[in-house]
C-alpha cells in the first residue's frame, strides 16, 4: 500500500530554486528590453558588470517627477507620450471636418487657394470668428461680423467687398474655422 503514495513528493518536481539569492528591481521599460536584447545576444552575462560602452545608446524616457530618495513616485511608471498632432488640433472629433479652399478672398489672414481648413461645428460663432457660412446653397469661408441685426461676411482681401446678408437670403453658419494647413511648396 505504501509503494505508490500519491501524496509523496516526486523528486525534481516543482519550481527550481535559484542557485544564488535574487532581488526584484524597478527598471524603465525600454531599459528592460535593452537588457534582454543584450542577454540574448550573449553580450550580457547575468551577474557580470555591464560595460558602459554598450549602454551608450539607451534612449531615456522623459520623466515628470524628480528623483527622490525613499519612496518612488508612482508617476514614474508613466513616461510622457509622444506628441499627437490630431489631439492638438482636434478638440471635438465627431464635430470636426476638413474642407479645401478654392478662392483667394482670405489671403490677408494666410488662407490661400488649395489650403485645408480645420472646421469645428460644435464651437459657438461670435462676431469676429472666421467661419464657413452657407449662402444661397454655397459654402464660403469669411470673417463673420455682426453689428446689431446686421450680418456681414467679410473677406480678408482688398480685392473683395464685404457681403451684407439680407433677410430673404438663405443663410446659415456651417462651422467655425480653427486652423489652416498651408504647405510651403
Amino acid at each position: 500500500m505504501t509503494q505508490n503514495n500519491p501524496r509523496k513528493r516526486k523528486p525534481g518536481a516543482g519550481r527550481k530554486p535559484n542557485p544564488v539569492p535574487t532581488k526584484a528591481i524597478r527598471l524603465p521599460l525600454p531599459l528592460v528590453n535593452q537588457l534582454l536584447d543584450l542577454k540574448n545576444q550573449g553580450k550580457l552575462d547575468m551577474g557580470a558588470i555591464i560595460p558602459s560602452r554598450t549602454l551608450s545608446s539607451v534612449p531615456l524616457p522623459f520623466f515628470e517627477s524628480r528623483v527622490q530618495a525613499g519612496f518612488p513616485s508612482p508617476a514614474d511608471d508613466f513616461s510622457e507620450g509622444t506628441l499627437d498632432l490630431n489631439a492638438y488640433l482636434i478638440k471635438h472629433k465627431a464635430a470636426t471636418f476638413f474642407v479645401r479652399v478654392t478662392g483667394d478672398s482670405m489671403t490677408g489672414v494666410g488662407i490661400f487657394p488649395g489650403d485645408i481648413l480645420i472646421v469645428d461645428r460644435s464651437l459657438p460663432h461670435h462676431s469676429g470668428k472666421i467661419v464657413i457660412a452657407v449662402l444661397n446653397g454655397e459654402m464660403t469661408v469669411k470673417r463673420l461680423k455682426q453689428e446689431g441685426d446686421k450680418i456681414l461676411l467679410c473677406p480678408e482681401n482688398d480685392k473683395y467687398a464685404p457681403l451684407s446678408v439680407s433677410e430673404d437670403e438663405d443663410f446659415s453658419i456651417w462651422g467655425v474655422v480653427t486652423n489652416v494647413i498651408h504647405p510651403f511648396s
Binding site: F97, V99, R100, M139
Partner: peptide, 13 residues
C-alpha cells in the same frame, strides 16, 4: 467621399 479622401474634401470659396 467628403470625409475620407484628401482629394475629395468639400470645397469652399
Amino acid at each position: 467621399s467628403f470625409t475620407q479622401d484628401w482629394e475629395q474634401l468639400p470645397r469652399v470659396r
